[in-house]
């Protein structure tokens, strides 16, 4: 006889803020923040690429710091604030980075795009006018296999100019 209840140790109670909204849930202590967002909270915009912190597809902002959500436990966000790609656009419209990615054709398959957007926002929030080398250095933790990065870098430069 099988069960629909996840076996293993008892769950951890988490109260957190995700994209400005309060969330409260129970999470298995071993579950990554990536799976917590995708499976418990239901936000699938954050993507899985490697599960070992080397591709950046799962990049989110945790209390304003850029992290690979596959390397953080869901239980660790208790009392903290998480921003994902779903929180970038507002009722006013797209974030300038999102608009620039569209206009500059900075995505092809799009699987790395949420991670790049969150990472680039983390850069521009702290450094409004980075040069090309700084952008390339900042984004080196995010892999894109489709674009060769040129159009991504241009999109970040364009968004930076728009936000100035």
């Amino acid at each position: 006889m099988t069960t629909q209840v996840t076996p293993g140790p008892s769950r951890v109670h988490v109260r957190t803020t995700i994209n400005g909204n309060s969330h409260e849930f129970l999470v298995p202590p071993y579950m990554s923040l990536l799976d917590t967002l995708r499976e418990i909270v239901g936000l699938t915009g954050t993507k899985e690429g490697c599960l070992d912190g080397n591709c950046g597809a799962c990049t989110v902002s945790l209390d304003g710091r850029i992290v690979d959500s596959c390397l953080v436990l869901g239980a660790e966000i208790d009392g903290k604030s998480v921003e994902t790609v779903e929180g970038m656009a507002t009722s006013e419209g797209l974030h300038p980075l999102q608009q620039a990615f569209l206009e500059e054709a900075a995505l092809q398959c799009g699987i790395c795009t949420p991670g790049f957007l969150v990472a680039a926002k983390g850069l521009l929030d702290n450094e409004p006018a980075p040069d090309e080398h700084r952008i390339r250095h900042w984004l080196a933790g995010n892999l894109c296999r489709c674009t060769g990065y040129d159009k991504i870098v241009r999109a970040v430069q364009k968004a930076s100019a728009e936000m100035a």
């Binding site: 993507k47 899985e48 790609v85 569209l102 957007l117």
Partner: peptide
């Protein structure tokens, strides 16, 4: 010409449904 791709909005907002989603 260079129009914005039709699936672009879904892919920059995290709404696009990939296989794992």
């Amino acid at each position: 010409t260079r129009p914005i791709r039709h699936d672009g909005l879904d892919k920059v907002t995290g709404r696009a449904i990939y296989g794992a989603d």
